[in-house]
Amino acid sequence: MTSVRVQQEDFDVAAEIAQMRSGSTRIGAIAAFIGIVRDLNEGDEVRTLTLEHYPGMTEKALEQIVADARQRWEISDVRVVHRVGTLAPSDAIVLVLVAGAHRGEAFAACEFVMDYLKTRAPFWKKETTPGGERWVEARESDDKSAARW
């Protein structure tokens, strides 16, 4: 099963995992990644982080990334929840859960989904620092991480 959601509200990690577990008794492992807002970027204090996306494309792009992961690994369930709107330091940004029979595939697929999301899903971050607002620049290291796969 694949579930992809884009939402303003926070997510409940325990509830998301519980839903996944209740869906199948064949799950032996769930790998989880949670991305969180930091209060520091490029040496500056970050007060708020606003995430914008491209409605219509976002869900399609995320579903394609999950479909790619399913082709590469034996995994049963994937859940991606990505927040948009204005967030504060320590707020959660993104949740990726991957369930499978064994940990190896779940770990690898979870990392793949995040690496691809970082370079292919249409989200953009704008941060507020003491110096004002600025768009976050894409990192070359993210392209390198995605190219590994």
Partner: peptide, 26 residues
């Protein structure tokens, strides 16, 4: 039309074409 395009991807009447900076989600 909501799919990442390449330089040689065709653009035709009726298409929705989005232009944006490299993405920074996650």
């Amino acid at each position: 039309n909501h799919d990442l395009a390449r330089p040689d991807t065709p653009v035709r009447a009726g298409d929705e074409v989005a232009l944006f900076p490299p993405v920074t989600g996650g």
